[in-house]
Design a protein around this nucleic acid. Structure first.
Lengths: 134, 134
DNA sequence: TTTTAGATTTAGAATTAGTCTAAATCTCGC
DNA sequence: GCGAGATTTAGACTAATTCTAAATCTAAAA
């Protein structure tokens, strides 16, 4: 890590590539996969490579700017919403939406007691039919 | 689909290979990956192929005899417990344990209301430290 | 009992998501 | 402008899983 004369961290981190990846994710309501992000990023920054998209996604995830979500079927998806929240997945069309369960803190407490774990976070996934599919 | 003279479905489905795969999963408290299942199955039925393990896992999953669980890191794991339950994952050692949250029905109702989905099931994942790691 | 159609298994090729590598490029502080 | 360290790139690589096509099995029909 680089420091300036005052000992502060002076690394410039949000490079153009990373910024484009972040914008792609922020510009959609959807939850795109790395492949979809690559395609969209390429339109704004032709020449960006697949590896850079992955590097950027790791960086953004570690910086807390995006969230990675993965459920069974293949590729991870990325979510612009970084606050704690839950997911609903449509078993018919595959649509994934965010929502917030009330009293997440209480849920965390109960889950910790039941599992004997020291809880850090809880996340709930609902499987069902989205409004369009029922 | 084959039928006998009475029109009943007579296909025999739980082949020796599938049965071995099922037994491997039932014989462990752990949640093995397909690769681990393949290794264990091979000891009981040398010559079983990787593809057959995958075929069997799909069959068993669709028959409701095992459950597939997948969280971010790579390979799916398989769970002998098929009743509704929740998972706790240790962020330090990766251990995965099952537990049951009380009032799952109430949770499902609240989640359905908040998400506007017609709920089929809910599953909660707790991330934290297992008893050995704290 | 032989035939046969469909299901299953097998080995290995193919696909897919994601990571790694090494060289080229960039950036910042000097 | 120089040089260290970070970043990007293209493409090779890996790991998980699926696909394919041929061989085998099974149970009903002949």
């Amino acid at each position: 890590m680089r420091k300036n004369t005052k000992g502060q961290d002076t690394e410039q981190k949000l490079t153009p590539q990373r910024e484009v990846v972040l914008q792609v994710i922020r510009d959609t309501e959807q939850h795109p996969t790395a492949g979809e992000i690559f395609e969209a990023a390429r339109k704004r920054l032709p020449g960006i490579s697949y590896a850079t998209v992955y590097n950027s996604l790791r960086f953004l995830r570690e910086a807390g700017l995006v969230r990675e979500i993965s459920f069974g079927d293949s590729a991870s998806r990325y979510d612009r919403e970084v606050e704690r929240h839950d997911h609903a997945i449509c078993t018919n069309c595959g649509k994934l939406v965010d929502f917030n369960l009330p009293d997440a803190a209480g849920l965390l407490r109960v889950a910790a007691r039941k599992s004997q774990f020291k809880a850090e976070s809880v996340q709930l996934t609902l499987l069902g039919l989205c409004p369009e599919c029922h």
